[in-house]
Write a protein that binds this DNA or RNA. Structure first.
Length: 427
RNA sequence: GGAGAGAUGUCUGAGUGGUUUAAGGAGCACGCUUGGAAAGCGUGUGUAUGUGAAAAUGUACCGAGGGUUCGAACCCCUCUCUCUCCGCCA
């Protein structure tokens, strides 16, 4: 959520930053275009309404005092009857105006940082650096590797639940678990994160706090008969742990890592990545979440990215780092850097982590604040990133560890978590 | 799922229609006192938003949302959450 004061103070600057996401964001009829008028309207009504309320409060108090002393107050009460009617009328108008304003406000994406490169889609993303030597020999896609080894069962997933679900067997199931354990241990023991375990179902307010709602309800699984949703990422429950709280500055930065399953309807991506387990309705992910001060957000972002990169480096999986362009940065983020892992079967890099900084956008929205040097409450800055997506990481391990005989070499760091197993052999 | 009890400020806790501007206590901050400390005493201590250069000051907020009333923390309705007991259950 953007700052209401800033809306009045820096209107043009904000508009320019928003327009970089695409002209539609600021076009006529957009929430942004209506916002200033709604703000003006709301404040005017409120000011009027408050004047009347002050009058009502004053007279009511007088009536109370007269009654106590046994004096007659019927004249005041009669006059108050009409005043009170007007107060109610105006109050209801004010509430509607307030609702209209906040509704529009929640539709406005986060203005981008200047350092976000221009561009309209993923073709315009900027590659910053590469790590590792990508193998260039022919490797079959992971669904063929997994089927041959008898460890990935897409038919079973489809039978049980539908398309975009997979059943893992044997070594793959264990590999999924090993990756989760390995990543959590790394972030907790080496990177200093506090591990949390959180609900995978959250309510509407929580979904709104991080920005998934109200705009993207069609991407979420909603529970029937309840105003609750399956989380699309641990970012939602973990960030919202501090919803409506004022934190002491000395507890910042807060750094959490969490394992959760993630659920996405993939409504807008019909036909993309239909084979294999790159794009699933349910997948596991380790998420990293930072809450910090706006001043420290930049250095926190660098740390966050390095923590995600460490996972890939230790697993010896080649990757590259991208700076997402203006058109590709998500609704709530100010700036996003993607980590893409090398998939030899596709001979391309594919997203495995997305690290974003949100400024005070989520802090304001979710009511997460800290006390600054003057003791004034200020929205915290939030950041988060995958560290990493487990399913995609499993795919990367299968393909990058693939040997000509059909077996898989397990990265050294994972072997202890695999009960000492060094390779996955055909059954 | 059933029955009951609750939800008040940083905490505790009073308040069942009108000087409540939310008592009292604790905590915290500052000051006085002291050789220093404790105790004691005094003052202050929320959030949001509006007006204002500031000092100030208006309004809202007693779980949430409605309603009754000239006036609601208090009465009525709906909902949420917590606790206790019963039932069911990993």
């Amino acid at each position: 959520m953007i700052d209401r004061q800033a809306l009045r103070r820096d209107y043009e600057v904000m508009q320019a930053a928003l327009a970089r996401r695409g002209e539609a964001v600021v076009a006529e009829g957009s929430a942004w275009a209506c916002l200033r008028g709604l703000d003006e309207n709301q404040r005017q009504l409120k000011s009027e309404s408050e004047t009347l309320q002050a009058e009502r409060n004053r007279v009511s108090k007088q009536i109370g005092m007269k009654k106590k002393q046994g004096e007659d107050s019927s004249a005041e009460m009669a006059a108050m009857g009409t005043l009170s009617g007007r107060v109610k009328e105006l109050d209801s108008l004010t509430r509607d105006a307030e609702a209209a304003f906040s509704e529009a406000l929640l539709e406005i994406p986060n203005p981008l940082l200047d350092s976000v490169p221009d561009g309209s889609d993923e073709a315009d993303n900027i590659e910053l650096r590469r790590w590792g030597e990508p193998r260039s020999d022919e490797v079959p896609p992971h669904w063929e590797i997994g089927a041959a080894l008898g460890i990935l069962d897409f038919d079973a997933g489809a039978k049980l639940a539908g398309s975009r679900f997979t059943v893992l067997r044997g070594a793959a199931a264990r590999l999924e678990r090993a990756l989760m354990q390995f990543m959590l241990d790394l972030h907790v023991d080496k990177h200093g994160y506090e591990e949390v375990w959180v609900p995978a179902i959250v309510n509407r307010k929580t979904m709104t706090g991080t920005g998934q709602l109200p705009k993207f309800e069609e991407d979420l699984y909603k529970l029937e008969g309840e105003d609750a949703f399956l989380i699309p990422t641990a970012e939602v429950p973990v960030t919202n742990l501090y919803q409506d709280m004022i934190l002491d500055a000395d507890v910042l930065p807060i750094r959490h890592c969490a394992y959760t399953p993630c659920f996405r309807r993939e409504a807008g991506s019909a036909g993309r990545d239909m084979r294999g387990m790159i794009r699933q309705h349910q997948f596991d992910k380790i998420e990293l979440v930072h809450l910090t001060t706006p001043a420290q957000a930049r250095s926190d972002l660098d740390a966050l990215i390095s923590h995600a990169e460490a996972v890939l480096q230790i697993l010896e999986l080649p990757y590259r780092v991208l700076s997402l362009c203006a058109g590709d940065v998500g609704f709530s983020a100010q700036q996003t850097f993607d980590l893409e892992v090398w998939l030899p079967s596709q001979k391309q890099y594919r997203e495995i982590s997305s690290c974003s900084t949100f400024g005070q956008f989520q802090g304001r929205r979710a009511g997460i604040r800290y006390r600054d040097e003057n003791g004034k409450p200020q929205p915290v800055a939030t950041l988060n990133g995958s560290g990493l997506a487990i399913g995609r990481c499993l795919v990367a391990v299968l393909e990058n560890g693939y040997q000509a005989d059909g077996s898989i070499t397990i990265p050294k760091a994972l072997q202890p978590y695999m009960g000492g197993m060094t390779t996955i052999q055909p059954r």
